[in-house]
Design a protein around this nucleic acid. Structure first.
Lengths: 338, 338
DNA sequence: TTCCCTTTTGGGAGCGCTCTCAAACCCCTG
DNA sequence: CAGGGGTTTGAGAGCGCTCCCAAAAGGGAA
């Protein structure tokens, strides 16, 4: 069943059927009606491959999720992101081609996917700072939007959460609660989120007039185990509060604290980042930063659509606002009455 | 850059270039070499839309994940499944088109996606028993494989975990540990996994000569909150052990038990299903059933590829084996020495 | 050297759609 | 009722590939 068949059945030409399908105004109302009837009666769908070939656009975007990011499998971040992107695509009649990029993917394979003409643009989620896929994209002429800002190239379009500001605000909150010896468990520093959250921590200390103490900083690599290990390293240096750059790491930190016989928040304050589903249900509900993951995904897709419609426009740099969620894990300290 | 260009550059015809690309043996070695060189030098990729149009196959499979399944966003099941499917696809040069199906999708939209010629087949993940998408697929001629067996139509291809047997074995284990008053928190009964796990529970009781007590059965709808509520309903009827049809529900049950001042496993035994990452790290590590999610995804994709190559073959019904993981939440009961 | 058979190559048609251009049609005015 | 404008329709080419068939090239035997 193709245009020609529909044309025959409704007594018009292929061109007219095409016009009806594409809502061309230059069709007499009665003709449109007649053709439309046949189309619905036959349950006809135009062939997308043919259409793609003829128009040069596929109405498909690629979603690249670099694997090896183990968090993919333990938290709802990616599913949520996917849902956001997918929702935006549905709204605009785009489809999503999913590409889980294994680390060992070579340049050739990358190009293969970029240049096969089945994809109009690409959204790349959560990349390492020096991801080869991003490099390949920069040197191609495939439109793309990053989720997570690019550290160096300001021409690159991105949608990101404002990690630096949010972290600063969170640590400011800790300072306001009366802490000065504030440690941080950082995320992987080759990921932009890890790096930005550390910068936010430093911003807050600087602004609060608190000198940086490197012994209070340890990397937790965004994993539970990493958080546990990092906490153990920081603990001997007697922190009053800990900012873990992810709730998952905070969970690990909590385990280390419990093993050391310390209680949150009586003995030590603890804050995280992400507002995972479990974070509100810990024994001491976790102060954290909630990020709009779904919206981030939607915005990224929408930014890409914009780009596809208007390739000449300047780079999109969108920082999504976050929400500081204060819970019981970071109560005010009792101050000595002065 | 297209076949014709490559042909010109290497001094052969379009047809010969096509042969080289498709590994046709009828090409002189020297010619192949020459063409191959030009292809790599130009970084040429054949246009997939054109190829799809010409051959009638897209080398793309659709992955349909019906939304509204809220578990999508709290556990690693779908990400893992996606990874498995994606891995199988990569291995066979297929791509994955992702389609998150909103519940309100109408038949028209379904058809639209099924008949647009960009997809060779479909994998449908975790469906409700009477999912309209499945109905639509059955009545279309689009090859498809379900993840999760179809309750009534034996012609439908599926790959599933052996929920019924695994549940039976788990409950048998509870019986072996010395329990007789064994309750169950069931999953949603309009999902095949929920239904099968309940059947397994009943199988074990029957086989163990334990009469069914409806007061010990409550639905938890596969959510934490549901598990909590169900546990509260069962608790007054003094169960010795609980089989929750998912670890997530077990978590809710645990919360209810703690609120009631009961401890696992001293006061009551608790078992789950799924072996979530958190399950091993609870205060009383959870006895549960581990299912091979990644492999399930891979097998489903592979089953679909088989089907695409050999459409005439009989229906594929594959049940993946599971592993009973016994942990501290279900210790043997102290028996009165007889 | 010629002939025949096999191997290798080239050309054309066609996949189903869009898009441009020209032809046909319609309606109104003078 | 002819002419002129706008509106509506149809035909053809082309998107980049595959696949079939025929032509050319090569190689060995007579």
């Amino acid at each position: 069943m193709n245009l020609e068949d529909i044309a025959k059945l409704s007594g018009v030409s292929r061109s007219t059927v095409s016009r009806v399908i594409n809502d061309d105004p230059n069709v007499r109302e009665s003709t449109r009606q007649r053709v439309q009837d046949v189309i619905s009666r036959m349950d006809f769908q135009p062939n997308l491959a043919a259409r793609t070939l003829a128009t040069g656009q596929a109405k498909v975007i690629g979603l690249v999720i670099p694997m090896g990011v183990s968090t993919m499998f333990t938290d709802p971040y990616f599913p949520m992101l996917i849902k956001g992107i997918s929702a935006a695509c549905n709204a605009q009649d785009y489809s999503v081609m999913l590409w889980l990029a294994e680390p060992e993917y070579e340049r050739r394979t990358i190009n293969q996917i970029l240049h096969n003409g089945m994809i109009d643009g690409v959204v790349v989620a959560s990349v390492l700072m020096d991801d080869p896929i991003v490099e390949a994209l920069i040197h191609s002429n495939m439109p793309f939007v990053l989720i997570g800002r690019h550290p160096t190239n300001s021409q690159v379009n991105y949608v990101d959460v404002d990690n630096r500001t949010s972290s600063r605000q969170l640590v400011e909150h800790l300072i306001n609660m009366g802490h000065r010896r504030i440690g941080t468990i950082t995320g992987a520093q080759n990921m932009i989120a890890g790096s930005d959250r550390l910068l936010g921590y430093m911003d807050a200390l600087t602004q609060g007039g608190i000198p940086l103490d490197l012994e209070l900083i340890a990397s937790g690599n965004f994993t539970e185990e990493g958080g546990y290990a990092a906490m153990k390293r920081i603990l001997p240096h007697r922190p009053q509060a800990i900012f873990a750059a992810s709730d998952t790491m905070a969970l690990g930190a909590l385990r280390a604290l419990e093993e050391a016989g310390l209680r949150v928040p009586t003995d030590i304050a603890l804050a995280g980042f992400d507002d995972m589903p479990f974070s509100a249900h810990l024994r001491s509900p976790l102060t954290t930063v909630r990020q709009p993951v779904l919206e981030t995904g939607m915005r990224a897709a929408e930014a890409l659509f914009d780009l596809l419609e208007n390739p000449a426009q300047g780079p999109t740099h969108l920082l999504m606002p976050t929400e500081l969620v204060v819970r019981e894990s970071t109560p005010p300290q009792l101050q000595p009455t002065s």
